[in-house]
Amino acid sequence: MPVVDVKTDIDALTLTIVADFAAPVERVWQIYADPRQLERVWGPPQYPATFVDHELSPGGRMNYYMTSPEGEKFCGYWRITEVSEPDFFAFADGFADEQFNPNTDLPESQNVYSFAPHQGGTRATFVATYPSAEGLQQVLDMGMIEGATAAIGQIDELLAA
């Protein structure tokens, strides 16, 4: 399992996940740069993702949905704010309706995904900052840690392929 640390900080409104991968930074970056690879690891295994829009550049938007085992769709979006390939990218991550309009009943987080060489591979640090302690708690109650950990766990298999 690549996840080596998970921290929530209610005061800082953050959820931080750290994972180590046995692949170079450039290879890990490619997972996020390629929508077909990203689909294989975004979301827990039982909720496969489909990216219908994918523009990993400042001002770009990535719209996706995850499909439950019962066929129900859960939509989301990323609004890309900053990109420094292959070191990091920053984005707003939100829940959406089926037309990819923001669902304001659920919190939008500000995220930074960073990648650095570490012990011959890559250390990825995923930091999500929520607008309020209630918003952070809401996604924690929805199983965000378990879902994200399961999703990140799929990356090793993709890297080995």
Score class of each variant (00 low, 15 high):
A49I: 08
V3G: 03
D156K: 06
E39G: 06
D141K: 09
A128T: 10
L106I: 04
I31K: 08
M66F: 05
L136P: 05
A160I: 06
E82Q: 13
P131Y: 00
P107A: 10
F95H: 12
P35E: 04
V3R: 06
V3C: 03
F115S: 08
A128C: 03
Q99D: 14
G135H: 06
P45M: 08
A150K: 15
E146D: 12
D93N: 15
M1F: 04
M1R: 11
V112N: 09
I155W: 00
T125H: 02
Q137A: 13
V6L: 01
A92K: 13
R40L: 13
I10E: 15
R123E: 06
I145N: 00
E134T: 11
E39D: 14
Q99S: 14
W78K: 06
E157T: 14
E98F: 05
F74C: 01
G135V: 04
D141F: 00
W78V: 01
A96Q: 03
F21P: 13
G94V: 02
S84I: 10
D156P: 02
G60S: 08
K73N: 15
T122C: 12
E146W: 01
Q37E: 12
D9F: 01
Q37T: 05
I17K: 11
E70G: 03
T14Q: 10
E55F: 01
V127P: 01
G120C: 11
F126I: 15
D93Q: 13
W78Q: 12
A148W: 11
P69N: 08
E70K: 13
M66L: 15
E98I: 01
Q37G: 00
A92E: 15
G43H: 07
A151R: 04
C75Y: 15
K7A: 08
P24S: 10
E85G: 01
A33M: 07
P48M: 12
D97S: 05
N103R: 12
P45F: 05
S68K: 10
P107V: 02
V83T: 09
E82P: 00
G71Y: 06
F88I: 05
E146F: 04
F88Q: 12
L140Y: 05
I152G: 00
T122A: 00
L106P: 03
L15N: 06
D87W: 09
A33T: 08
P117K: 13
F115T: 11
N103M: 04
G143S: 09
E26T: 14
E39L: 02
P2C: 10
G121I: 02
S132F: 08
R40W: 03
Q119F: 06
A90D: 09
T129G: 01
S109P: 00
G94I: 04
P107R: 07
A19V: 03
V28S: 10
Q46I: 06
T125Q: 09
F88D: 10
S68F: 05
S114V: 04
L13C: 11
P69R: 11
G76Q: 07
Y32V: 09
